[in-house]
Design a protein around this nucleic acid. Sequence first.
DNA 1: GGATGTTGTCGTCGGACTGACGATAAGCGT
DNA 2: ACGCTTATCGTCAGTCCGACGACAACATCC
Lengths: 232, 232
Amino acid sequence: MAGYDPSAFPAVAVTVDLVVLTVRNGALCVLVVRRGEDPFAGREALPGGFVRPDEDLLAAAARELAEETGLAPGTAHLEQLASYGAPDRDPRMRVVTVAHLALVADPPDPQAGTDAAAARWAPVDEVLPGLAFDHDRVLRDGVDRARAKLEYTALAASFCRAGFTVAELRRVYEAVWGRPLDPRNFHRKVTSAAGFLEATGETTTRDGGRPAQLYRRGPATLLHPPLLRADS
Amino acid sequence: MAGYDPSAFPAVAVTVDLVVLTVRNGALCVLVVRRGEDPFAGREALPGGFVRPDEDLLAAAARELAEETGLAPGTAHLEQLASYGAPDRDPRMRVVTVAHLALVADPPDPQAGTDAAAARWAPVDEVLPGLAFDHDRVLRDGVDRARAKLEYTALAASFCRAGFTVAELRRVYEAVWGRPLDPRNFHRKVTSAAGFLEATGETTTRDGGRPAQLYRRGPATLLHPPLLRADS
DNA sequence: GGATGTTGTCGTCGGACTGACGATAAGCGT
DNA sequence: ACGCTTATCGTCAGTCCGACGACAACATCC
């Protein structure tokens, strides 16, 4: 950070890209948009856009997320993922992108969006590999982060609507980790982790069978003890 | 990522900043440089610099690390930490910085460096708070990352020279976590974690007392089982 | 050379947690 | 009433953990 002359350095464009994940009927899905222009015209890519002059990085990501999904800001979990800046990652010019990871519950089908007419929720395995730019890598990093975070944080509840059952939460874990879990052990661990779940007192039979307790997410953000996946 | 006109967006400068950590006589230390110019003239800051036109982000960080510490490239662990881009974080212009975290063992005292004449290794608690720009935040995030990564990765060995003892490794954990550990339990866990340590067969008495086995780091990068700190 | 101190290494023990299950509860449709 | 489905509670053996005791192998000082 010694003295510098800004004009001596080439213009760099800074964008935010979004890895927006959700769980839809048992599959981990990501929001992708089909590109209309070169480069990579016709290919699918992660949504994203430029950071505006007076906007913080996270604010830019939140704005893009709202634009792209139609969800009210603050509804979803959003965190910075990583930055990607290989010199040739965009053939037009030097673009450094700050990727963000978003987890949303129950998203509406994208269609009313402004220029997001070509957006869709796609199972992760379906679009991988094949995304534009270095977005395969970005998506993989995002999925890895989500998998890891489910282990030791209460983040999985971000994939669930307000009142959810233990079984619904379990299906989230199974979709993200891609592995079946024992319902009885999962129930024990999740209900005994302090601050993870709060019972609402209501029940539902929307999954059939015996009525299940409805929960909302508790105050805890870190899980003690963590919910480890078996060593794979 | 819809169509865009690069000239419609203001120039953004992209830099890399470095959180370089090491352990020196029981204290977690960070490399800081004293600024000679405004803004923040006279204050200490994390080392960093511009990303060059044809340089990847990690490559820029590696170059800065070599320049600043005099260490041969590839000697230390280096990973991306996070990006910081608040619009007013640098009063001169819009600067987005991609912070990186480096862990080094046994660093030389900085002095021969080019413009790093004012660089020093300072205990983390000594410089915090008080760094220039948003570097307090960056340093805190780096320390948090290091603390977390010691739990479930074999990264602590990056703080040790080639042949190290279990006690030296333990002192690394104690310095980073700021908490004493039981030598006997630590020894058991660390030597039974598959792939973490490889005995060299040699011994040393450099810490006094009974001669201790010398180890080099094993092939494992993730620890099974993890080395959890007690719930705090 | 023996006492003493220092550090490294191995064991033991009770408690907590885990995965693999069995058993029971409480709805639904027929 | 009967079976089907899902939820929830228990049991049991194995594993891991922290707290600690015991011993081993050096250096130093008398």
